[in-house]
């Protein structure tokens, strides 16, 4: 097998992984600590991308777009938490699913109203539009940038969760939210903080994805499904689980798509291989999830409950 191609595909897998991590880190905390099923997380990702595209098209600066979109996503997240979702936290999961699914439709219509149905333009900063040369192979520099930003966020979250007082509360909340409340911490405020943090990360993910994926209504749904796979695989409520889960899902998905069809070509007749290869490759992450759930029902890196 071509080693350079393999290296490229591994980088592709890591890049998809860190993008998924940006979404799943927030979602896993919201699931794990607030015990809240938030299907509208993909909408926050979409809002991040749209705000970034709007700023980018007005001022032409990607950095400015980034600096505007992340706070905007946080703000939208906090407003959602305080105004819309506040009454839902104590309700059943099914109610939460219904309400946040409704929010997906609302957000899609909001962006359609303001920006129309067609995809809108945003591009990587000029310096990152080319390719970088690694040991004899070229790789898109913007994807390297995504990997760097994602890993930095991972490091930042690690420090936040493990080295700060807020992080301690978040860890405690993940282990036993009621007890944290009983110990006198304002769990409402902690929840708002977590929701805002998750929204900001989702918004950041949207900005990062903007230059490679089309910015259009409904762009949050496909990635939401992958995100759900990540947090189930990694373990709900665990940032560590989200990080490794995202990388595993990213790598399995990418390497599967890259090499599965060729492998099938070797083993099967061509017409059968062309049908089965891509089909099995696209099922791979779900098979992985089912396998993980069968042997480790709480995910690969579950939250340790004392």
């Amino acid at each position: 097998m071509d080693l350079q191609l393999l290296a490229t595909q591994i980088l592709n897998g890591v890049q998809l992984g860190v993008l998924l991590f940006l979404l799943s880190a927030g979602l896993t905390l919201i699931f794990g600590i607030m015990n809240f099923v938030n299907l509208a997380h993909g909408s926050l990702y979409m809002m991040g991308a749209y705000v970034a595209a709007a700023v980018f098209n007005t001022y032409g600066s990607f950095l400015l777009a980034l600096l505007a979109a992340v706070p905007a996503a946080i703000l939208i997240g906090i407003i959602l938490d305080r105004v819309v979702l506040a009454g839902l936290y104590s309700r059943e999961h099914l109610d939460q699913v219904l309400a946040t699914f409704g929010l997906i439709l609302v957000f899609n219509e909001i962006v359609r109203y303001f920006w129309g149905s067609a995809p809108i333009y945003i591009n990587a900063p000029q310096a990152l539009r080319g390719t970088l040369e690694f040991f004899g192979f070229e790789y898109p520099s913007y994807r390297v940038f995504i990997i760097a930003v994602g890993l930095l966020c991972g490091l930042g979250l690690y420090l936040l969760i493990n080295k700060t007082r807020v992080g301690m509360l978040i860890r405690a909340g993940a282990a036993d939210a009621e007890m944290v409340d009983a110990m006198g911490t304002n769990i409402r405020r902690l929840n708002t903080l977590i929701f805002g943090l998750g929204a900001g990360l989702a918004g950041l993910g949207g900005v990062m994805a903007g230059p490679i994926l089309s910015v259009q209504p409904g762009m949050g749904e496909p990635i939401l499904i992958l995100t759900l796979v990540v947090i189930v695989t990694g373990g709900i409520g665990s940032i560590r689980g989200a990080f490794y889960g995202a990388l595993i899902v990213g790598l399995v998905d990418t390497l599967g798509r890259a090499f599965m069809p060729a492998a099938f070509n070797e083993l099967l007749a061509k017409s059968l291989a062309q049908a089965a290869g891509p089909a099995v490759a696209s099922m791979l992450i779900y098979l992985l999830m089912a396998f993980v759930l069968a042997i480790r029902p709480h995910g690969l890196f579950p939250v340790r409950n004392g």
Binding site: D2, Q4, L5, T8, Q9, N12, Q15, L16, E138, R143, I212, L213, S214, P222, I223, T254, L255, R257, A258, P261, Q274, G277, P278, S282
Partner: peptide, 21 residues
């Protein structure tokens, strides 16, 4: 070669790497 990607696949990095090679 004929490459088929799932209809919901948004990112073509793996396939593009193959085309480049």
């Amino acid at each position: 070669d004929e490459i088929y990607t799932p209809l919901d696949q948004q990112d073509f990095s793996a396939e593009l790497a193959k085309i480049a090679s």
